[in-house]
Amino acid sequence: MKMYLRQAATAVRFLLFATLVLGVLYPLAVFGAGQLVAPFQANGSVVKDQAGNPAASALIAQVSADGSGAQSPEWFHARPSAVSWDPASSSASNLGPNDPKLLDAVSTHRAAIAAAEGVPVTDVPADAVTASGSGLDPHISPAYARLQVARVAAARGLNPGDVQRLVDLQTSGGAEAFLGQASVNVTLLNLDIAAAANRH
C-alpha cells in the first residue's frame, strides 16, 4: 500500500511538471515561432476585401445564401455542408454509402443544382451533391465551377470568359493537383468576383 502511495505521489508531481513543459511552454513556443515565421497562416489565413476589412479565411468555406436562406445567384457556391458552413463546429454527414437518407439528400441536391444552373441533372458533378468531411471545405471541382460560370456572369453583368479566367486563377495545379486533385477555392474566387464586379 505504501509503495502504491509513493508511486502515486511521484505520478502527481511528474504529471504537474510535465504539464508545465508540454502543456504550457511547448504550445507557447510554437505560438511564438509561428507568429514570427508565418503569422498569416498561424492566425487563420484571414484575407481582406477591397476595402481592407477582414472578409474570410482562405481555408474556410462561407455560406452564399441570402437572409432568407436562398442561394444567391451572384456568388459561386461551395459544396453541401453538414454544419451549414459555420466554423463554430465541423462535421461530415457520417451517413453510410448505402444509407437511404444520403440517397435522398444527393438526389435533392442534384435536382436543385440542375434547376438553378439550367443544366441536365447528369451534368452535376459528384462534389456538388456531397457534403465534405469537415463541412468547411471551400474547394469545389473545376467542373462544378464551370457549371456556375454562366449564372454568376449573368447575375453580375460580367463577361463569362472573364469569370472563367477568374476561376482558372483560383484553380490549383502542379504537384498539389497531381497529389490531390484540381480544385477551385470558392472563398477566394468570390472575393475576386466581388472585386471584378466593383471595377465593372
Binding site: 454509402p97 440517397l103 442534384r110 456531397t130 457534403a131 465534405s132 471545405d137 474547394h139 490531390g180
Partner: peptide, 18 residues
C-alpha cells in the same frame, strides 16, 4: 447506392485532399 447516385466518391471527402 448513394455513392453511385452522387456520380462517384464525394460524401465525406475533402475536395482539396481528394
Amino acid at each position: 447506392t448513394a455513392t453511385t447516385a452522387a456520380g462517384g466518391l464525394g460524401e465525406g471527402f475533402e475536395q482539396r485532399l481528394g
